[in-house]
Amino acid sequence: MEKKDQDPESKSAKNISRRGFIRGAGLSTAGSVLLSSNVLAFDYREHPAKGKEFGPGAMTIKMKVNGITKSISVEPRTTLAAALRDHLGLTGTKVVCDRGACSACTVYLDGKPVNSCIMSALDVGDKEVTTIEGIAKNGELHPVQEAFIEHDASQCGYCTPGMVMSCVHLVENNPNPNLEDVKDATRGNLCRCGTYPHVFKATLEAAKKMI
């Protein structure tokens, strides 16, 4: 498995990510509230360019999304998810928990899954963003998408984009996953309809077809 900590600068104490905090907070509650540190998305720590001050007004930034570079005008408080959904019309990325706990907002940053709801749009910089809309190439579905359709792996469909992103990342990086690998890859993805069994089946089938 890849190392979760992608950024060498993140060792410093000031970089306690919001999700890291939440994870700690989750342990302290009582009753039936159990561990929920099951988010897979990689930690991209915030490290804004030093010496510059932004905001509070909107500013124009460039962002490369699904192979196309676009200019958007966003306030510094804009999350990557909001930039994609509200400014670029890419509404396949869903915001469900709005705090990095459910992976519905998963997109790739230079190929690595991140939670776009807790990432600043300004922190994307020159990294390339891939969203669910960029997974099918030239009108051809990814084998994971094909398999999701074949095995009825979506119900209401609201978690599906995030699920597809997690499962595509798995099969692209592990040519021969087993069930535990699929569970591991989707361990941060919340589905309330209960699509998990069909998601597992679909992803394993897709991986087989890709060999």
Binding site: I22, L34, S36, N38, R99, C102, L190
Partner: peptide, 16 residues
């Protein structure tokens, strides 16, 4: 006290 998703425990893939 747990009006969110991280502390409102529901099954994820590992509990299925």
């Amino acid at each position: 006290m747990n009006a969110n998703i991280d502390q409102y425990k529901v099954p994820f893939s590992m509990e299925i």
